[in-house]
């Protein structure tokens, strides 16, 4: 991992073991995500990256170990936890009657965002969805729906942003812009936990990385980028 940060840890996982039906899917993970920093999880399909993210979000009970947010055990049942953490996972569920813009308004107003109109408009523009603002999500392409999910993650305030392979289904230009957006997120003091297979995203955004495997280990970002080359993992 990169040199130790003196910034306070937003998210901290200690010997976190995750899995299904009592069986671990990967080795225990210990990491922390400080404010203004990004930690990336890399590893082949099925290695346990998404499972770790779910445990970090309180959506999965860890088999052992602990996860804490700002010093308190993760408990997604608390409204204050949900106010602090924004997540973009692989969900693909939409209200059939709500338009693209209305989905964003729902999130923005639900989080008490002032000037929600301006924010929604800006994000629709940023993610190339302005022309589809009044469309129903089920009529969009899979890449456009992915953009909408990302916009929904960014339309609300947060301290931690958790992203599960955000590059999926995005074109190269959008991937590049998203990476820049995540750098801006860090500059604003946000913490980012990201699982990715994209070397460019990893190199641009991450400050530290974990290779998720039978023996999960911390590596430098350069080592993680190397690990993403074909045949390495």
């Amino acid at each position: 991992m990169a040199k130790k940060s003196s910034r306070p840890a937003v998210l901290r996982a200690e010997r976190l073991t995750v899995g299904w039906d009592g069986r671990p899917v990967c080795g225990a993970a210990t990491f922390s995500v400080p404010a203004g920093r990004a930690v990336a999880l890399v590893g082949p399909n099925g290695s346990g990256k998404s499972t770790i993210l779910r445990a970090a979000l309180g959506l999965l009970e860890p088999l052992s170990g602990t996860v804490s947010l700002l010093g308190r055990p993760v408990d997604e049942r608390e409204a204050s936890f949900r106010a602090q953490v924004a997540a973009v996972l692989d969900d693909d569920a939409w209200f059939p009657a709500l338009t693209v813009a209305e989905h964003l308004y729902l999130v923005a107003r639900g989080h008490g965002v002032g000037d929600a109109d301006d924010e929604v408009e800006a994000l629709l523009d940023e993610f190339g969805l302005t022309g589809h603002a009044n469309a129903l999500p089920n009529t969009l392409s899979s890449g456009q729906r992915r953009r909408l999910l990302l916009a929904a993650g960014l339309v609300r305030p947060r301290s931690l942003l958790v992203l599960d392979e955000p590059e999926q289904r995005l074109d190269s230009d959008m991937r590049h812009r998203l990476a820049e957006r995540l750098v801006a997120e860090k500059d604003a003091g946000g913490a980012v936990l990201i699982a990715t297979h994209d070397p460019e995203m990893l190199a641009t955004v991450a400050d530290a990385a974990l290779i998720v495997a039978d023996q999960t280990r911390k590596v430098t970002v350069d080592e993680a980028v190397d690990a993403l080359r074909p045949g390495v993992l």
Binding site: V10, V113, A116, D118, L154, P157, R158, G190
Partner: peptide
């Protein structure tokens, strides 16, 4: 919250 969105 570290990252604020929108105005007040």
């Amino acid at each position: 919250l570290a990252v604020r969105v929108g105005g007040e």
